[in-house]
Amino acid sequence: MSEGDAALAYKMVAERDNETVRVERESTYVIVAKARVWASEGWKVVITDKDGKSYPPEEFDKLLAA
């Protein structure tokens, strides 16, 4: 697998009304920061790690502690 084909470690999905936004990042800090901003704006946000475990906003700190 080449470097460009590597799957990113974290995926964020933010949903509100009829809109969905998806963001993928390698950095835990960047994805948590983005997710917190979206959540503060009233979006329902979940982060999923490379193992498929999902984290709602109240568990974002667990990602940073890992």
Rank of each mutant, 00 (worst) to 15 (best):
S40Y: 06
L8M: 15
A7I: 07
Y29Q: 15
W43K: 03
G42I: 05
D51M: 03
D49T: 00
R22V: 10
R16H: 12
D17G: 04
W38V: 08
A39F: 03
A9V: 02
M12T: 03
F60P: 05
W38R: 13
I31M: 10
R16K: 15
A39T: 06
R16E: 10
S2D: 12
E26T: 14
W38M: 15
Y55K: 01
E3S: 10
A33H: 12
T28A: 15
D49L: 03
E59H: 04
E24T: 09
S2E: 12
K34P: 00
R25K: 15
V32M: 05
K11D: 00
D5N: 15
P57W: 05
E26S: 15
W43H: 05
Y10T: 02
D17S: 09
R16I: 08
K53D: 11
K11R: 10
I47V: 11
M12L: 11
W38G: 01
A66S: 12
G4A: 09
K44D: 14
V32W: 05
V13G: 00
S40E: 14
A7H: 12
S40P: 07
A66K: 13
D5V: 09
Y55R: 02
G42Y: 07
E58A: 04
V23M: 06
S40W: 03
Y10C: 02
K53C: 06
I31R: 05
R22A: 02
D17L: 09
E24K: 11
Y55N: 01
L64N: 09
I47N: 06
K44P: 00
S54P: 00
Y55G: 01
Y55W: 02
P56T: 11
A66R: 15
T28N: 10
M12K: 02
E26V: 11
